[in-house]
Design a protein around this nucleic acid. Structure first.
Lengths: 189, 189
DNA sequence: GAAAAAGATTGACTTAAGTCAACGAATTCA
DNA sequence: TGAATTCGTTGACTTAAGTCAATCTTTTTC
């Protein structure tokens, strides 16, 4: 149950089994259905999720009622509405599992308690933030000034899972293009 | 010389004067000219800058020779090519002061030494990352799916300094629109 | 397993924004 | 301070991508 999480933690820093178990003991396993909403637009995020199986999607809905996908977390990564989790303001986005999923979930209180008391966990959190920052940057800069074809090619190179596991509609809204455009591009490549 | 930096640090965490001085002692002041390059595309970032006066711009150049602005740091904020600073890989971007500037500069070694030895500084670094992450997210999501007019309005609301202090050309490339389009939009509002 | 719903594809048309070029305004620096 | 260069604005034209709708396909659900 904690195997993937433990190997994730070990990959980030050197850490003994006792500490690993202490960390894992605060994570509860939950199973969710495809399309289940974990967090609503107006809610404040108070749990951090680690994906054991399945996929979490972060998305929002624009004024005109269109879904915009923001982020996908697959097996072996953490996901939550981080700005809300950090600042305890309404998320202004939804968290959803887009496949039947098995998640490990930790409360915000426990999470920050671990950050405060276990230096290795603090280090891991820093690395999660650093990585999140770098990924966000790459996403902005990888796309900036390029056309739809380039964005799709970039995604195939950098996040191949997306095209394989996520619907056209969700992928298109993630890339900031219309489903028709994505469909046309895929047919030419 | 360290007044702005100290008040920045104090705003982030409670910290005594001795520790503040210890932190500040690792920052050296440098003065730079308008358009001076602090870091080249192929270099590895090994300094973190705090802007006392002026403005740092992060930008890159595309295959077809166009500058794309990525980030602007004004007075009272930190700026560097963070992915390179973190991972010690070539920056693939330039750092430049776009005004005559006064910067406080710390080496990567000293920076991570402070992170490792002064818990308050580690906390501040975490908050810088959290904030950077949130800002990056807002930038992606504030723009996603919206047209040029909306992007300009968003920028006026969220980063009013940009329109006032940065040239049209740089602002346009930051927003991912052409200078002509930015010019046309500004004339209509 | 059939009916219904949701998603994907494709074509015809529209539109927002880009390009290119010309000109005027503003900076730069010798 | 004046020549030179860069920057901003505007107009005419082009184009990439969006919209809308029809059709086809896949996935749900009862």
């Amino acid at each position: 149950m904690y195997a993937i999480l433990k190997s994730f933690l070990k990959s980030k820093t050197s850490i003994d089994e006792t500490t690993l178990n202490e960390i894992c003991s605060h994570f509860k396993q939950i199973k969710t259905k495809k399309n289940e909403i974990l967090l609503h637009f107006d809610q404040v995020a108070d749990r951090y999720y680690f994906v054991n199986k399945g996929c979490i999607r972060l998305f929002t809905i624009t004024r005109d009622g269109n879904e915009i996908s923001r982020f996908f977390a697959f097996e072996g990564s953490f996901g939550t509405a981080l700005p809300s989790f950090i600042d305890q303001k309404p998320a202004e986005e939804y968290l959803q599992t887009i496949e039947n999923s098995e998640l490990l979930s930790i409360s915000r209180t426990d999470f920050y308690h671990l950050v405060a008391t276990i230096p290795q966990f603090a280090k891991i959190y820093t690395e999660i933030l650093e990585l999140g920052f770098i990924v966000a940057q790459k996403r902005i800069y990888g796309f900036q000034g390029y056309d739809a074809l380039y964005k799709v090619k970039w995604t195939i190179q950098n996040q191949p899972q997306l095209l394989l596991r996520v619907s056209n509609k969700m992928t298109a809204s993630y890339l900031g293009i219309s489903p028709s455009t994505l469909s046309r591009i895929k047919s030419k490549l």
